[in-house]
Design a protein around this nucleic acid. Structure first.
Length: 279
DNA sequence: ACCCAGGCGGGCG
DNA sequence: CGCCCGCATGGG
């Protein structure tokens, strides 16, 4: 199964701190990428070649027919997004314009809800390298090489979860895994962004930022605008809003980038980290 | 030794 | 509401 993806950059997307960064195995060699992405039972394997702004993708999986796999890949990698119009809509200022230029083709991905929830429970007060190590430990210890189900983590002891290096997050992971209900969590996709966020934040360990990450990369609600330390730094230093509480920063982002704020966030985050001047 | 990382819950005023 | 604190761990 082959896809030619226009205006898609595989490296920026894979390495952008989204769930696939955390639990996929991937390697890059020149313009080529190899990715093995664990499902609950099985894998999706991808060979991709970056050709300028476009990307040639070959994918394989025993879990899907060719037709299904194509739809699956397009959805997961954000290839259905009208990226040119998204860029046009969010490049409201020079900083964002440069950010898009620097990370051209980076997409917001759509990931399995549980995989996203677990990823961002682990992410709090943590760094990308360590999040990844912990997620790969979960795959190894609780998923038998595949992605671990909520069940397998609910059955594990807090101590076993702790042993993957989760630290103080172990109790949150255990509790959310025990309460995780696939139908209920799926039903949140039918709620508005605000209502879905309120529901997610009822779980201990899911606060404002983690909820927004789950909504953005799991539910693909593009109005979600996760505010972490980097985003806060970028907004305050570059955009100089009058009020700087999290609540006010959310308002600012919505005003600046509207319902595509989540896309803007992804570019602000990486361009902000790259530009050392903010440190 | 110190500081930080894709924050959160809990307690307080 | 806003502010402050503790929290596990590893890398710079």
């Amino acid at each position: 199964m082959q896809i030619i993806a226009k205006d898609f950059n595989i490296k920026y997307t894979i390495e952008s701190g989204q769930p696939l960064t955390f639990f996929a195995n991937y390697s890059f060699s020149g313009s080529k990428a190899l990715i093995k992405y664990p499902l609950y039972e099985g894998f999706i394997s991808i060979e991709a070649e970056q050709i300028g702004k476009d990307c040639k993708i070959n994918a394989y999986s025993e879990n899907y027919s060719n037709l299904e796999l194509e739809l699956e890949i397009k959805e997961r990698l954000g290839l259905n997004d009208d990226i040119k119009n998204i860029y046009k809509s969010i490049s409201t200022d020079p900083f964002m314009y440069s950010a898009i230029e620097s990370f051209y083709g980076m997409r917001v991905t759509k990931n399995d809800i549980w995989q996203t929830t677990l990823s961002f429970l682990v992410s709090q007060f943590n760094n990308i390298k360590r999040i990844r190590r912990i997620m790969l430990c979960f795959v190894d210890k609780f998923g038998k090489g595949y992605f671990p189900s909520w069940d397998s983590l609910a059955k594990a002891s807090t101590k076993e979860i702790f042993a993957c290096g989760t630290g103080f997050r172990a109790k949150y992971i255990k509790e959310v895994a025990e309460k995780y209900d696939q139908e209920l969590f799926s039903s949140y996709s039918r709620l508005s962004y605000e209502e879905a966020k309120k529901e997610l934040m009822k779980y201990k360990g899911i606060g404002d930022k983690v909820a927004d990450c789950i909504l953005l990369m799991g539910y693909k609600k593009l109005e979600a605008f996760p505010i972490d330390t980097w985003i806060k730094r970028v907004l305050i230093n570059v955009y100089k809003p009058e009020k700087t509480s999290i609540k006010e920063l959310h308002k600012f982002a919505r005003k600046q980038w509207g319902t595509l704020a989540g896309y803007a966030q992804q570019y602000l985050y990486w361009y902000g980290r790259e530009s050392k001047l903010l440190k």
